[in-house]
Design a protein around this nucleic acid. Structure first.
Length: 420
RNA sequence: GUGGGUGUAGCUCAGUUGGUUAGAGCGCAGGAUUGUGGCUCCUGAGGUCGUGGGUUCAAAUCCCAUCAUCCACCCCA
């Protein structure tokens, strides 16, 4: 087999898709309660959207985008995340003209050119929500609550909510200076990456894994202690709302979001058992994004959740999703005449809404019964010459082993009665 | 992009200091039971040993390259 799925991509086979469908059903159920509605945006966009929205200097834009020219010589990029597209759609469709806020959710594939690793793929899937047009801190808390409720309904445990505020461009500028002042004296002790970061983006020094253990990290100025009055107030109110909902969280001054558009609230929900990539969902407020795209001043907040990471966490915690893979009925036949008759009943039963299967490989009766068992059939029908002559079918309850004959004329009705 | 581990049957893995027809368990197919699944027993099918090159009388085994995969860094979902 020479042709394989491209690196970092995965086939989802039926045993997987059943789980994915369960997650998506649960997503719709929970998010709808919070009055979020589904939006579907294109999987590719004009490259400029991401350059401007996510930020020219970010890793995503610098080295992780799947970008190509289409036949019309337009630069196109497979979306590396969902927020920029949702904001683009919001602006393009002038949705701000409707009653606000606008609350959306979405689910779908994202693409980033990275080396695959546990919990990281080149095509991965996110479930995301975005609330646009409201800067009320209650929305920030609502978004976190929604994510936590979703994961809790999947029975996930030991989730940590990390909370920070990255302030507005004003407080960030001041803070950046404070950080530089602080790290100046330790510059020689920082790793080489961080020496670069010192100039380019000192905030990133805070979550460097190499330098994490250094003692002076403890005493580095915390951004949430350096916020301007407005940002500080917002941050406090988010916490109050979370307290009100009794959602546990920990302040984490090291939580720095990589994308340019983030302002104020930043959060991450992590599960420590996942390995290096332990964030299940992360997000925050992006009051500056709309301006980057369209010059309009529209606040927004959202998060993105990694579907593969949810699945990993479920596996790690030994949680089996309640998925029913059984089928109602398996038809076993003996002889060609019976096979033809069965094919017709198969159709009728399926039209009646039953999940029914028969053998197509000419297996022995024993083989067919085995097949019925493998398919988790609740009942099997045995249809042979004897039955056809008498105008009946033998119905076997696969759990109890009990068998009865019923008239073929009543087959569909009788089966429906049993299945209900 | 950088570093390390691993590639043998559909799956999980054995395979001695290089030595002749490459094994096991599970799964799959058939039979024991002339028309009845799960348990048991028997039988069978299935492998260019990731790929290419090299060393050697001889390579799954040693060397080189390459690809894939896993893990970690960077960064993020």
């Amino acid at each position: 087999m020479k042709i394989r799925a491209p690196r970092g991509t995965n086939d989802l086979l039926p045993q997987d898709t059943a789980k994915w469908q369960y997650l998506e059903d649960k997503m719709r159920e929970v998010f709808t309660c919070y009055n979020y509605q589904e939006i579907r945006t294109p999987i590719f966009e004009v490259t400029d959207l991401f350059r401007r929205g996510i930020g020219e200097a970010t890793d995503i834009v610098e080295k992780e985008m799947y970008t190509f020219s289409d036949k019309g010589d337009r630069s196109i990029t497979l979306r590396p995340e969902g927020t920029a597209s949702v904001m683009r759609s919001f602006l393009e469709n002038k949705t701000y003209g409707q009653a606000q806020p606008t609350k959306y959710f979405y689910a779908g594939p994202m693409f980033r050119y990275e080396r695959p690793q546990a919990g990281r793929y080149r095509q991965f899937h996110q479930i995301g929500v975005e609330a646009l047009g409201a800067d009320n801190p209650a929305i920030d808390a609502e978004i976190i609550a929604l994510g936590i409720q979703f994961l809790t309904e999947l029975e996930l445990e030991e989730l940590e909510v990390h909370l920070n505020s990255v302030g507005c461009p004003e407080c960030r500028k001041n803070y950046r200076e404070k950080l530089r002042d602080y790290f100046k004296q330790y510059l020689g002790e920082l790793c080489s990456d961080c020496q670069d970061r010192y100039e380019r983006n000192p905030l990133r020094i805070l979550d460097c894994k190499a330098d994490r253990r250094q003692e002076f990290m403890e005493d580095a100025p915390k951004i949430y202690e350096e916020l301007c009055t407005e940002c500080d107030q917002h941050f406090n109110q988010v916490q109050q709302y979370l307290d009100l909902l009794e959602i546990d969280y920990m302040l984490d001054a090291r939580l720095v979001r990589g994308l340019d558009y983030y302002t104020k609230t930043a959060f991450e929900v992590i599960y420590k058992g996942l390995g290096a990539q332990d964030t299940i969902f992360g997000g925050g407020r992006y009051d500056g994004l709309a301006q980057e795209i369209d010059g309009r001043d529209i606040p927004g907040i959202g998060f993105a959740m990694g579907v593969e990471r949810i699945l990993l966490t479920l596996k790690e915690q030994g949680i089996e999703l309640p998925i029913d893979q059984s089928m109602d009925l398996f038809i076993t036949t003996i002889g060609e005449e019976a096979e033809q008759a069965a094919f017709k009943y198969l159709y009728s039963l399926r039209q009646a809404g039953l999940k029914v299967e028969m053998d197509y490989l000419g297996r022995s009766v024993k083989g067919q019964m085995k097949c019925a068992d493998r398919n988790n059939a609740n009942y099997s029908i045995i249809l042979g010459g004897d039955e056809l002559n008498k105008g009946v079918a033998t119905i076997r309850n696969m759990k109890s082993g009990e068998q009865v004959e019923i008239k073929l004329d009543n087959l569909v009705q009788e089966m429906k009665k049993r299945i209900e």
